[in-house]
Write a protein that binds this DNA or RNA. Structure first.
Lengths: 256, 256
DNA sequence: CGCGATTTGTGCACGTCTTCACAAGCGCCT
DNA sequence: AGGCGCTTGTGAAGACGTGCACAAATCGCG
């Protein structure tokens, strides 16, 4: 990827957030830290140790410290991290200081649920518009928003300033929708359709696929069953127990 | 940990899958390959080159070959891979030869959509039972299944042989549900609740979180905006264009 | 039967991520 | 003030994942 390190570049003026292309793995964990921090703030804590926050976020404390170190030193040794300060910092880095508008395309089974999901607003996202290709669904009202026909996408997108598009259509329609979203200037897409989207360079696509998650779990289930079913293969049952084969870090493996 | 009663008949007489703990990243991609293969089979192809399949699955061809090499050599040089044979192999490795039963807990906004999702059955999963803690929801019928109270979980789980539990409850209830699932012998959990679950060793948890995905996209959006907004900072505009900053591999990054 | 075109399988080098271990820094208590 | 315990921040090492490039293998054709 691009690493532009200019030795000659003079110090940046001002306290600019200093976008230091932080590692992708770190970015994927920041939201989890953020949620843990909000929980801690609600309970009244105003400082946390890396150990405590790591625990709340389900990660290793060393990893957490390294992650946070990437966005500057906002902790004090011997004490820990200031909760509200850290919240502000992470939100700033993630670009959550401004409320981002989301366009949701596909108001079927899943899309309907997403439209009604209150986790959007609570995390600083606003559903700006709903679209569907099915004329019988157009006009329906969900959560105070009216479903419009997908052909109006370009017109509506011009009014509202869409920064993220969510695709919740059946697979065959997804690529066409993605093309339309890209055409109106959307550069971030969250795809729930079980298919691969091809988009031009510079457009980010993240995919969420229920079936894939289940199949991955199925694999591990299958493996565990095979191992326990087979009579101890030369290895003593004693060594098998203490966790040699335990896959403990599945929890955060999804994000990356 | 897992008091797993393995199915009575030792049916696996054929070629042993030869469980070679394949890399986690590979496992996460196999379902995508599987889907692409099914698509190809539907179109009538009976062989594919690694290039073709990689294209359909949205990955590098070298990566695909290495992935497939991990589960044995099922391709012929100069020709490619036999589609149906490869399908069988991957399904066998993923443990999809048997239909796995899923218990879904939490029939709220999202849970309702999941219960009606037809991607379950089409991928070899069967929703065996629905649960909810809200008495007003108990008794409701969704997709031919009746919603039962979550207290009946242990009784029902004894009848049906649940292999995967899906949690779609609000965050505060998730941990208790996870504990109950673990108590009845479930060792694979798919968690849609926005919180960290703590489970004993040997239990796999995968998490799907809409808000986190949006926040990750928000970060990239924020970064892209900052870069284009700033007047070219010493870096030549020429080098900036050809894709230095394009994050092209976000697509499959989620699974892992 | 042999040759060339094609495609798989893989050794190797590289980059990224994780984890350990510890020095540096901070606050508190005496 | 000084020492002590606690916590951060980070260098280094190792594990893991990726991509290139090429040898080995196979098919089709003359």
């Amino acid at each position: 990827m691009s690493q532009h390190r200019h030795p000659g570049a003079p110090g940046r003026a001002g306290a600019v957030p200093a976008l230091p292309d932080l590692p992708e793995a770190t970015v994927a964990r920041l939201p989890e830290y953020l949620r843990a921090l909000h929980n801690l703030a609600d309970v009244g804590h105003d400082t946390v140790s890396s150990e405590g926050l790591a625990n709340a976020a389900g990660v290793n404390s060393a990893k957490l410290r390294k992650d946070l170190s990437h966005l500057g030193s906002y902790g004090t040794r011997g004490v820990g991290y200031d909760v509200s300060l850290l919240i502000d910092q992470i939100e700033s880095v993630l670009g959550l200081t401004q409320c981002r508008s989301v366009a949701l395309v596909g108001v079927g089974n899943l899309g309907h649920a997403l439209a009604g999901y209150d986790g959007f607003a609570s995390r600083g996202f606003r559903i700006a518009a709903l679209f569907d290709a099915d004329p019988s669904r157009v006009g329906e009202q969900i959560n105070g928003l009216v479903v419009r026909h997908v052909d109006e996408l370009s017109r509506v997108a011009a009014e509202e300033l869409i920064s993220i598009g969510v695709i919740a259509t059946p697979a065959p329609a997804a690529q066409a929708v993605a093309d339309q979203l890209v055409a109106v200037g959307v550069t971030s897409i969250l795809n729930f359709a079980p298919c691969v989207l091809s988009v031009p360079e510079g457009v980010d696509v993240r995919k969420v696929d229920l079936a894939i998650e289940l199949q991955i779990l199925s694999f591990h289930e299958h493996r565990k069953a095979s191992l326990t079913a087979l009579p101890a293969t030369a290895g003593s049952a004693l060594t098998a127990l203490p966790g040699g084969l335990a896959a403990t870090d599945t929890q955060e493996a999804i994000g990356t």
